[in-house]
Amino acid sequence: MISNFKLGDLFQQEFIVSEEIVNKFIGVSKDKNPLHVNDDFAKEKGFKSRVIQGNLQNCFISYFIGECLPSKHVMILSQTIKYKNPVFLNDTLSLNVKISGIFSSVGVIEFNYNFKNHLGQIISNGKINIKSIL
């Protein structure tokens, strides 16, 4: 499985933060903090409209690791995320991923990633470690 990956390999995946997706996320997470569901409240806090829950990006990472890599025989060992800018409804996010380390002895691949919005702003970044389960 590790042979499917090379140091420096790049991946990209786009996601649209649609109302349907956000509502499903709220349904699962139960996070209805007014910052996330109330435009007026968000504007009072200095945002242009309600701010989408940052952890929705972790769902996108889950999809990317589980469905978009060259191998399905993987599981996530660890994941970090640092938020840099807010996400708003109907933003298009691109997930940009680079393989930063391959550790064949323990079947681990390390990725650096960031999310950018359609304006090119970095929304978040972090690291993901996955393990081969072949």
Binding site: G101, S105, V106
Partner: peptide, 24 residues
């Protein structure tokens, strides 16, 4: 077993070396 994997990863990064699974 899981933190052991991350320990090996961290050690390989710290010392900029790679081991074989048989060595570990």
């Amino acid at each position: 077993s899981l933190t052991h994997i991350m320990l090996v990863v961290e050690i390989e990064k710290t010392f900029n070396m790679r081991f074989l699974s048989s060595e570990i």
